[in-house]
Design a binder for these strands. Structure first.
Length: 927
RNA sequence: GGGCGAUUAGCUCAGUUGGUUAGAGCGCUGUCUUGACAUGGCAGAGGUCACUGGUUCAAAUCCAGUAUCGCCCACCA
C-alpha cells in the first residue's frame, strides 16, 4: 500500500467491479422487507450540480446501508423530460442557427430534442457513477419512455372519466415569451419598484368624475366596470351610474362588490376581468363583459383603439399614460413597490390571460393526501414541514396541466369540427368509444402536459404500473423519498395525491427533506454570483485558471467578471487539489443536519480527506501485522491486561455500532459520521493501535499475539463495514486486502452484513479509561513543565484506593512505560507532599514526578495555582448546590449522589494541591 | 399580512425527553520527524449559549416577549 491515501488510484476501478458483479441489481427473491428509494429524476439534458451530489450521497448511503442488511434493495433511477427547460435549450440551439421551432415544424423539432437527449443524456449517469451511486442502471427510466407515457395517458383518461380533469376557459398565468400557460407554482413573485397611477374616469352624466388607481394602466383599455364597496357611504348613490372610459369612448357601469377595500386608495377599483385574477371573480359575480386586450405575445389586440394595437403592453403603458396625461385624466403618479409575477424559467413578466386550458380538480385528491400525513402513513423529516404541507394542501387551487409546448406528453383529447371534445387513450379508442365514423375528421389537442404530471406518477410508473409487475409488488410503496424543500409542492405533494389515487397506497413512508448546499460563506451558489462548485472539481481537483474560466464564461452579466475572478482567487489561490469522492461524501454526510442549509467549505473536505488518510494508514499498520490467516475461532476470555485492551476496543466498537445504526435509522447522518470519525480516530487509532503495539511485538506471548491479531483484523473489518455506506471506495479497497487474512468468501464489502451491536464490556472500559487518564495526566504535566517527551520519569503515587490502583499499575506498567515514558512507580504511604516534585491528579491517585535539579519552582506554583482556582470554583458550585435543601430533596437521588461524589473528589484534589503548594512555597522562600 | 427557521468558540456547526466542568472539525499556540500516518503525534488557549423576563431545586434546552438575519405562502387595485 502507498504511504499516503491516493483517491485517484482506487476509486474508478471499484465502480466497474461493482457493476461487473451486478451488485446494484435488486435480488427480488429474498424473503425480507424490501427497501426502495426513487431518485428524483434530474433533467435529462442537465448536469449534476452540487445539490444533486449531496442528495445522491444520502440516497447511496441509505441504499448501501439497507443492502448490507440483506433486504431486497432498489435505488430506482431515471431522468425527466423537463418540458419547458429542455425545449428552451433546444430552441436556443436553433436560434443560434437563426431558426425558430416554427420554422422547422413540430415533428422535426421533437426529433431534434430526442437527438439532443441522446447526445447529452449520459452526462448525469457518468457523473453519478463517479460519485459511487449504487443505482440499478439496467432499469433506468425516462418520463417519456413508452411505459411511462402509457401510465400518463391512463391516468389522464381515468381522471377525466371521473370528472377530475376538465377543460375550461379561465384566467391563467401566461408567459408571453414562451407562449404557454403556467401553474401557480411556476410563478415567482418579486418585489419591484413601480408606479401607481391615479386616473380620473368622468361620469357620463357630466357630474364630475371618480378616481381609480392602477399599477398597470394599459389594462384600462379592457375595463368593463368600476367597483365600490356596497357599504361605502361615500359612493352609495354612485352605484349604477355610467362612466366614460377615457381613450376608448366606451361606457362602463359603477358596481358594488365586497371585494373592494374602502380603506385603500379612493375606494374605487377599476375592473378588468380579462387581465386580473381578482377582477375576474368580480366580473363573474356581476356578469360583467370580459374584454381580452392581449395577443399571446402580450401585444395589444384589436379590441383596443387602433393606435395601441400591436404594441407590447409595456410600450402601450407608456403611451396610455402619456395620452391620459395629455387629456387631463391623469390625477397623479405615485412611486409604488409591488410584487411582479415572473415565469420561473423565462423570467418574463407574466400576464393573467384568458385561454382554454386543462385543469385537475385537486380538492378531492388533496383530502386523502392530507390524511396520509396527518395519520402518520407518511412521515415528513424533519417534522415541521408538516405545517407547510398542510397549509398549502388545505388552500390548494386547481392545477393547470396543459402547456402550449411541443416537448412533452401530448394531451389525449381529440376535437371534431363541431367543437366536441373526446378523451381516450388513442384516436382509435375515441372512435370506437363514441361510435364515430371513420371519415369524421378529428384532430388531437396540440398541447402537452405539465412535466410534473408525469413526475407525479414516478414512484409507480417506473416500477411498471399499470401492469402489476413483480417490481411494483416488491418495491411499492417505496421506503423514503430524499428531496429538497423546494419541490415539496411541485412534486412530493402531487406524488402523494396520485399515488393514493391510483394505487390506493402511499408512494413512500418517509420524506427526508434536506436543505440547500451553499458556499463556504453561506451564500447561495449560482452562476451569476460565480461561486458555483462542480462536485467533480472537488473530487478530481481543478487548476485556478480552469476554475476561473469555468466561472466566468457565458455570464449573463459580464460586468461581474472581475469581481468573480477576485473572489475565486481569494477562495482558491491554488485552485482545488482534488480530494476524492469519499472525502466529498463524508463531508456531505457530516453536513446533513436536520433541515437547514449547509455551507460547503473546502477546509472541511480536506479534513475528511485527511480522515481517509488516517484510516488508510491504520489499515497499513494492521496489514503489516496480519500476514497469513487469522485464527477466527472465538478465543477464551482472559483478564490479562493485554486482553483487556482487546476487550476494550471491541466494547467501544459495539457502542459505535449502536450509535451509527440509531443515527442512520433516524436520518441523522451528521451524528453517525461524527460517531464514526471519533471512534476511528480518537479510539481505534489514537489508543487501540498504540496500546496494541506491545501485544503484536515479537516479545509478546503467542496467545496474546493471536488474540490481538484477531481483534485488530475483526475490529478493522467491522469498522470498514460501518464506514462503507459513507465512503464506499476506500473501504472496498482496504476490505479486499483483509479478505485473505480473515478468510472471507464474499466478493465485495457490499455483500457483507452490516455490523450488529454486541454487548459492552464495562469492566474493560473502566480499566482502559483508568489507563488513559493516567497516561494523559503524566503527559500533560510533562508538557506544562517543558520536559522532553522522551525523558523517562520515575513516578511516586499515592491513592485513596490503593489496592485497586496498585493492581492496575502493576498490570499496565508496560503500557505506562511505553506511552507515558514512566520509568518506575513507587508507592507513598501517605498523601504527603513530596519535595522537588510536580504533582498531578488522575482518578483517585495523586501523582508525583520528581524533578531533582530540574524544577522551576515558580512555574510549578503558577501551574498549581491556576489549577487550584479552577477546582475551588467547582467546589463552591458543588457546595452551594448540595447545601440547598430544595435541590437535595427534589432532584433525583442519582443526580444528587453524582454531585456528592464529585464534591468528594474535588475535596481530595484540592487538599493535594494545597499541600503541594505549601511545600513549593516554602522551597521558594528558602531559596 | 400569515407561517417556518436561525442566532452556541475566530470560522462552519452538533448539543435527543431540562441534570457532571456546553462539544466537534477547521483555524490558532507550544512541542515532537518515535518503523502506520507531518494529509501526522502529544499538550494547550479560546464561549455572558442574541437580548429581557418567567417556570423550576436545576435552563443553551421549556414558556412569553424583543432584536437581527434568512426562507416560504398570500397579496389592496
Amino acid at each position: 500500500m502507498d504511504k499516503t491515501y491516493q483517491p485517484q488510484a482506487i476509486e474508478q476501478k471499484w465502480y466497474s467491479y461493482w457493476l461487473d458483479n451486478q451488485l446494484f441489481s435488486p435480488e427480488l427473491s429474498i424473503d425480507k422487507p424490501s427497501y426502495c428509494i426513487m431518485l428524483p429524476p434530474p433533467n435529462v439534458t442537465g448536469n449534476l450540480h452540487i445539490g444533486h451530489a449531496f442528495q445522491d450521497t444520502i440516497m447511496d448511503l441509505l441504499t448501501r446501508y439497507h443492502k448490507m442488511q440483506g433486504h431486497p434493495t432498489l435505488w430506482q433511477c431515471g431522468t425527466d423530460h423537463a418540458g419547458i427547460a429542455t425545449q428552451m435549450v433546444v430552441e436556443r440551439q436553433l436560434a443560434a442557427q437563426g431558426k425558430s421551432r416554427h420554422d422547422i415544424g413540430r415533428e422535426a423539432f421533437t426529433d431534434a430534442v430526442w437527438d439532443w437527449k441522446a447526445q447529452s443524456g449520459g452526462n448525469i449517469r457518468q457523473q453519478m457513477q463517479r460519485l459511487g451511486a449504487s443505482v440499478d442502471w439496467e432499469n433506468e427510466r425516462f418520463t417519456m419512455d413508452e411505459g411511462l407515457s402509457k401510465a400518463v395517458i391512463d391516468v389522464f383518461v381515468e381522471l377525466h372519466e371521473e370528472g377530475l380533469i376538465y377543460r375550461g376557459q379561465r384566467l391563467v398565468n401566461w408567459d408571453p415569451v414562451l407562449h404557454t400557460a403556467l401553474s401557480d407554482l411556476e410563478v415567482i413573485n418579486h418585489d419591484e419598484q413601480g408606479n401607481l397611477w391615479h386616473i380620473r374616469y368622468p361620469r357620463s352624466d357630466g357630474k364630475g368624475h371618480i378616481t381609480v388607481a392602477t399599477t398597470r394602466p394599459e389594462t384600462m383599455l379592457g375595463d368593463t366596470a368600476v367597483a365600490v364597496h356596497p357599504d361605502d357611504e361615500r359612493y352609495q348613490d354612485l352605484v349604477g351610474v355610467e362612466l366614460e372610459l377615457p381613450l376608448t369612448g366606451r361606457q362602463i357601469p359603477v358596481i358594488a362588490d365586497e371585494y373592494v377595500d374602502p380603506e385603500f386608495g379612493s375606494g374605487c377599483v377599476k375592473i378588468t376581468p380579462a387581465h386580473d385574477f381578482n377582477d375576474w371573480d368580480v366580473g363573474q359575480r356581476n356578469s360583467l363583459d370580459v374584454i381580452n386586450i392581449l395577443n399571446p405575445d402580450a401585444t395589444l389586440n384589436d379590441s383596443v383603439p387602433e393606435k395601441y394595437r400591436g404594441l407590447d403592453r409595456i410600450e402601450a403603458r407608456r403611451l396610455v399614460v402619456a395620452d391620459l396625461e395629455e387629456a387631463g385624466y391623469l390625477e397623479k403618479t405615485d412611486k409604488h413597490q409591488m410584487a411582479v409575477p415572473r415565469g420561473d424559467r423565462s423570467g418574463a413578466v407574466l400576464e393573467p390571460y384568458l385561454t382554454d386550458q386543462w385543469f385537475v380538480r385537486i380538492e378531492p385528491l388533496a383530502k386523502p393526501a392530507i390524511d396520509a400525513v396527518r395519520n402518520g402513513d407518511i412521515r415528513l423529516i424533519p417534522e415541521n414541514w408538516q405545517t407547510t404541507y398542510f397549509n398549502w394542501m388545505e388552500n390548494i387551487q386547481d392545477w393547470c396541466i396543459s402547456r402550449q409546448l411541443w416537448w412533452g406528453h401530448r394531451i389525449p383529447a381529440w376535437y371534431d369540427n363541431e367543437g366536441n371534445i373526446y378523451v381516450a387513450r388513442s384516436e382509435a379508442e375515441v372512435r370506437s368509444k363514441h361510435n364515430l365514423s371513420e371519415d369524421l375528421e378529428l384532430r388531437q389537442d396540440e398541447d402537452v402536459l405539465d412535466t410534473w404530471f408525469s413526475s407525479a406518477l414516478w414512484p409507480f410508473s417506473t416500477l411498471g404500473w399499470p401492469e402489476q409487475t413483480e417490481r411494483l409488488n416488491t418495491f411499492y410503496p417505496t421506503s423514503v423519498l430524499v428531496t429538497g424543500f423546494d419541490i415539496i409542492f411541485f412534486w412530493v405533494a402531487r406524488m402523494i395525491m396520485m399515488g393514493l389515487k391510483f394505487t390506493g397506497k402511499v408512494p413512500f413512508r418517509d420524506v427526508y427533506v434536506h436543505g440547500l448546499i451553499r458556499d463556504a460563506q453561506g451564500n447561495k451558489m449560482s452562476k451569476s454570483k460565480g461561486n458555483v462548485l462542480d462536485p467533480l472539481d472537488v473530487i478530481d481537483g481543478i487548476e485556478l485558471d480552469a476554475l476561473l474560466a469555468k466561472r466566468t464564461t457565458g455570464l449573463m452579466q459580464p460586468h461581474m467578471q472581475s469581481a468573480i475572478e477576485k473572489a475565486t482567487k481569494k477562495d482558491f489561490p491554488d485552485g482545488i487539489p482534488g480530494f476524492g469522492t469519499d472525502a466529498l461524501r463524508f463531508t456531505f454526510s457530516s453536513l446533513a443536519t436536520q433541515g437547514r442549509d449547509m455551507s460547503l467549505d473546502m477546509a472541511r473536505v480536506q479534513g475528511y480527506r485527511n480522515f481517509c488518510n488516517k484510516l488508510w494508514n491504520a489499515a497499513r499498520f494492521a496489514l503489516m501485522h496480519l500476514d497469513g490467516e487469522i485464527d477466527n475461532k472465538p478465543l477464551g476470555g482472559s483478564d490479562s491486561a493485554a486482553d483487556q485492551i482487546n476487550h476494550w476496543v471491541r466494547s467501544r466498537l459495539a457502542h459505535t455500532v449502536a450509535e451509527v445504526r440509531r443515527h442512520f435509522d433516524q436520518y441523522r447522518f451528521d451524528l453517525a459520521t461524527q460517531a464514526l470519525y471519533e471512534f476511528t480516530w480518537n479510539e481505534f487509532c489514537d489508543w487501540y493501535l498504540e496500546l496494541s503495539k506491545a501485544n503484536l511485538s515479537d516479545s509478546a506471548s503467542p496467545a496474546v499475539r493471536a488474540a490481538t491479531r484477531q481483534t485488530l483484523a475483526q475490529v478493522l473489518e467491522q469498522l470498514l463495514l460501518l464506514l462503507h455506506p459513507v465512503i464506499p471506495f476506500i473501504t472496498e479497497e482496504i476490505w479486499q486486502k483483509l479478505r485473505q487474512p480473515l478468510g472471507l468468501y464474499e466478493h465485495s464489502i457490499l455483500q457483507r452484513p452490516f455490523p450488529q451491536a454486541t454487548e459492552r464490556d464495562t469492566s474493560a472500559e473502566r480499566q482502559i479509561d483508568w489507563l488513559k487518564q493516567m497516561i494523559q495526566a503524566v503527559r500533560a504535566t510533562r508538557t506544562e513543565l517543558n520536559l522532553a517527551p522522551g525523558k523517562p520519569l520515575p513516578l511516586k503515587v499515592w491513592s485513596e484506593q490503593r489496592d485497586a490502583d496498585e493492581q492496575l499499575i502493576n498490570d499496565y506498567l508496560p503500557w505506562l512505560q511505553k506511552l507515558a515514558r514512566v520509568e518506575s512507580v513507587s508507592w507513598l504511604p501517605k498523601p504527603e507532599t513530596q519535595e522537588q516534585c510536580a504533582s498531578a491528579r488522575a482518578g483517585h491517585m495523586q501523582l508525583f514526578i520528581p524533578l531533582a535539579g530540574l524544577i522551576d519552582v515558580s512555574a510549578e506554583i503558577d501551574r498549581l495555582t491556576k489549577q487550584q482556582q479552577k477546582v475551588l470554583q467547582q467546589q463552591a458550585q458543588l457546595t452551594g448546590k448540595l447545601s440547598n435543601d430544595k435541590f437535595v430533596n427534589n432532584a433525583p437521588a442519582a443526580v444528587v449522589q453524582k454531585e456528592r461524589d464529585r464534591l468528594e473528589d474535588v475535596h481530595a484534589e484540592l487538599a493535594g494541591i494545597e499541600e503541594q503548594l505549601a511545600q513549593l512555597n516554602s522551597m521558594r522562600d528558602s531559596d
